[in-house]
Design a protein around this nucleic acid. Structure first.
Lengths: 175, 175
DNA sequence: TGGTTTGTTTAGTTCGTTCTAAACGTATAT
DNA sequence: ATATACGTTTAGAACGAACTAAACAAACCA
């Protein structure tokens, strides 16, 4: 009986691992989240080592990554030195946190570089064909990213209720 | 004069390189797309080697990746053995192509694994607390991904005009 | 004080990816 | 046929990310 459940859990954890790696996160990180998510009660680091099958060091660092993204939350019990973790179950909040984290790093920096390149074009001799071409292309790229960014941000900011509305607005491909 | 423009181009190409790597593609791939995108006329492989500064082999393979994603298009001129490349400038079409490419691979597979794990739970003894808990959690995860997937797909399918409408519907978070 | 239990940090290893350099294939021209 | 101009493929180097094992630190207990 229990063996079947355990197998199902392992399958799920492995799937989370794949999904994690697909989105550019460490495999172990997804697996750990899966394990926390499937635990009916707050779970310890050592239990995670057991379930996920990676070293304690790896669990430790990955759990901290998950915490930073607010995908898991630490709980402490008085008179107990162990840390207990519970999963964040509001996935849209998770998406939001991940986007924020990413935003403030390389991506924004790259966008600023695009900005800069546009300014550099403007600073160059302004009225030959090539200049105008560069200007047009770069600013098109810029406005695409701007729109993209706004849409993503806006969607991430929606709560679960308004999301279902959005879902309806977009129209179901299956109807 | 021209030196400034060239510097601007280099900056832009480097930014595209960063963005590419951010989204999990090879740096060179983004740089190459940037170079093609900034070229006012169809550009050859050797010119790309010059502009991007990587080996011919790398340009060759990355250009083919870009072609597969329909981010660049090959043009041939009669009586000229060189291949000429032009950039796809409809970015939403690019997004669509990338999503399709990715979809049909690991992600879908992972989702099927989630399905499977749910079925495994159902197949196990059905009426203890833990089973019910697993069932609930896994199906919640499943429906999240289902919604997520539908939203992404729907947005990618929109054309530029309807996108601006969507942009309005979502409302600016700053107002 | 010394020994346990816990989590963190670090040094080093492994692994996959991306690149280079060079060999290769193929078409064209002389 | 030989040489040239092009793109592709391959073998291997270089790199970075993520993990392991083990040392470490800190808190608690005896």
């Amino acid at each position: 009986m229990d063996a079947k459940l355990q197998a199902a859990g392992a399958k799920f954890i492995q799937a989370m691992s794949q999904i994690s790696s697909f989105w550019g996160f460490p495999k172990a990180m997804g697996a750990i989240y899966g394990a926390v998510y499937l635990s009916p009660r707050p779970i310890t680091l050592d239990a995670l080592v057991e379930l996920v099958g990676v070293s304690k060091g790896a669990v430790s660092t990955n759990v901290r990554k998950l915490e930073r993204l607010q995908m898991v939350h630490k709980e402490v019990k008085i008179g107990d030195r162990k840390d207990y973790y519970v999963a964040e179950t509001n996935f849209w909040r998770v998406v939001q946190a991940i986007l924020q984290e990413r935003q403030n790093r390389q991506f924004d920096q790259a966008l600023r570089a695009v900005d800069e390149s546009l300014q550099m074009v403007s600073a160059a001799s302004e009225d030959d064909d090539l200049s105008r071409f560069y200007q047009q292309r770069i600013s098109r790229m810029q406005s695409f990213f701007s729109t993209f960014d706004k849409i993503v941000t806006a969607i991430a900011a929606l709560d679960e209720f308004r999301l279902s509305t959005l879902h309806k607005i977009l129209g179901r491909p299956d109807t």
